[in-house]
């Protein structure tokens, strides 16, 4: 059981929630959240948006029953957080280019922060695409070397990747597919996939993602995969 330290609306239907947490987390990992008993039945997978020892922060969009309940929680309330689960984004040696679309920007903040902590001289560029309202842009500007923003357009149209950059992306599948297609094959690209989940730990086989090397579980083998594993056609 985690205790909520803050839970605030930062943009229409977008909430940022910080909770107590005593373990450690890697960028790109997620937790299974619940603040209810049996209705709804399942926990909700939410990525780590930020982490400092003792505290993990989530950024989530209200879309249905579960996230509506999460949005009503107040400071001091309890929330069950199971995790962290999943492989997370790998550590890299080169420069980093991240591409986020919509609520897919959520896991990229801790990714960039972690990268900059490990590699203060590394260069990190961030592309953020939103349909209507942008959020978290200033937070990214504070930690990244460059932020390229697009509202209402197609972020991948602006994407220019440097030869030595590793690309990491999270967002609508159609956006990630376009990233996978436009970034030169010489660049390494990692994508963070989404799937409906029941267990979150690899037991139900409900979150399958078809890859070049057969079925993989998004919850356990992912959510982060190499581009060529997932977008291989």
């Amino acid at each position: 059981m985690a205790i909520i330290q803050s839970n605030e609306c930062i943009s229409p239907d977008i909430y940022k929630m910080s909770v107590t947490f005593s373990g450690t987390v890697l960028p790109g990992q997620f937790f299974m959240l619940r603040a209810w008993d049996k209705d709804p039945l399942l926990s909700r997978p939410i990525s780590v948006h930020d982490y400092v020892p003792g505290k993990v922060t989530f950024l989530y969009q209200v879309v249905g029953k579960g996230t509506k309940i999460l949005a009503k929680l107040k400071t001091g309330d309890n929330v069950e957080i199971q995790g962290p689960y999943g492989n997370g984004f790998p550590e890299i040696t080169g420069d980093l280019c991240v591409v986020g679309g919509g609520i897919g920007v959520a896991p990229l903040y801790y990714l960039v922060k972690h990268y900059k902590e490990k590699k203060p001289n590394g260069n990190c560029r961030v592309y953020l695409g939103f349909r209507e309202n942008a959020y978290c842009v200033e937070a990214y500007e504070a930690i990244a070397d460059e932020v390229i923003l697009d509202i209402g357009g197609i972020i991948t149209n602006q994407l220019r990747v440097q030869p030595d950059e590793v690309v990491m992306t999270c967002g609508p599948e159609i956006m990630m597919a376009s990233v996978a297609k436009t970034v030169p094959l010489e660049n390494v690209v990692y994508v963070s996939m989404e799937a409906h989940m029941a267990c979150g730990i690899g037991a139900c086989l409900g979150c399958t993602c078809e890859t070049k090397s057969g079925n993989k579980k998004v919850c356990k083998d992912g959510p982060v995969f190499l581009r060529e594993e997932v977008f291989y056609v």
Partner: peptide
């Protein structure tokens, strides 16, 4: 899709 939540239930197509 293999999982779909319903009121008090779960549909699966594993």
């Amino acid at each position: 899709i293999r999982l779909w939540e319903t009121p008090a239930g779960l549909m699966n197509s594993i």
